[in-house]
Amino acid sequence: MSDATTPNPYAAPVSDLQQPLGDQAPSIEEALARGYDFSIGALIGEAWAKVKGTKGIIIGGFLVFYLVLLAATFILGGIVGVFGALSDNLVAVVVGEVLVSLLASALAYPFMAGINMVGIRRAADQPISFNEIFSHFGRTVPLIITAMVMMLLIYLGMLLLLLPGIYLAVAYLLAIPLVVERGLSPWQALEASRKAISQHWFKVFGLFLLLGVIVILSAIPLGIGLVWSIPLMVVAMGVLYRTIFGVLPAAQ
């Protein structure tokens, strides 16, 4: 007679999306099945209340992000320029420039993932630090794949009468943090984000449209207001993520 606690070697494998992840956060499948809702005003209000203590970390993280993006673009652009000078093929040069733009953006995504995680941890009242910005290079390959697939699908959607691209640009907003916070594969993260946001796509679109207006207006007086509005946007995304998926306990 077999022990009831012995795993069944013939049992069907459990999907990564369906594994329970503790009492503090549902599995991805559970989060998608239970549904969610939020008020745009209440979400922004909560995010604003949590901005205190995040400004230095988030603004510093964005500075690092843009420096890396600038350096990658400069280096890769120089390489393409050399090959372009040696080649008479205009198509190859144009394709090379497009690839540089895509690759440079993708290489900076580990930093963006770290910034996203600062907002998510703040939304969940977990400890935050500047080190979070540099904590996700172990996921560089899946992050780059996620970013490139996401950009490719959005660009293709833009070519198809524009609306599919706008839909995907909003629907994929939470894919990057899903790769690092839940360890999902690129396609799992893209699909989980799309399925979740599609439940309230217009409300999420309205939320980030309003946040975008706030950021633009805050930039008018010499950009000083960006010190508050950019962290507000990051924390607001974290609150949205926590509302939909919950947040796993921070690693000790």
Rank of each mutant, 00 (worst) to 15 (best):
G157T: 06
I75F: 05
G238T: 12
F83G: 07
G165P: 14
K52T: 13
G41N: 12
G53Q: 02
L210R: 05
L70P: 01
F245N: 02
W201T: 10
P231E: 09
E46N: 12
A250H: 11
L190A: 07
L163S: 05
V94L: 13
V14M: 04
I220Y: 04
L232D: 05
G206F: 09
G238F: 08
S185E: 11
G212D: 01
S105E: 08
S2Y: 09
Y36G: 06
I28D: 06
L70R: 01
S218N: 00
T243K: 12
P20Q: 05
A12I: 04
Y10Q: 12
A171L: 00
E97C: 06
V204G: 08
L222N: 10
L107F: 01
W187C: 09
L209Y: 09
R34L: 07
H136D: 11
G81H: 03
G78T: 06
I230W: 07
W228M: 13
L43A: 04
K52Q: 14
F65R: 08
A123F: 00
I220V: 14
E132L: 14
Q18V: 02
G60R: 14
G35T: 10
V14T: 03
L248I: 07
F65T: 04
G246Q: 10
Y172Q: 12
L143H: 00
Q18T: 09
K52I: 10
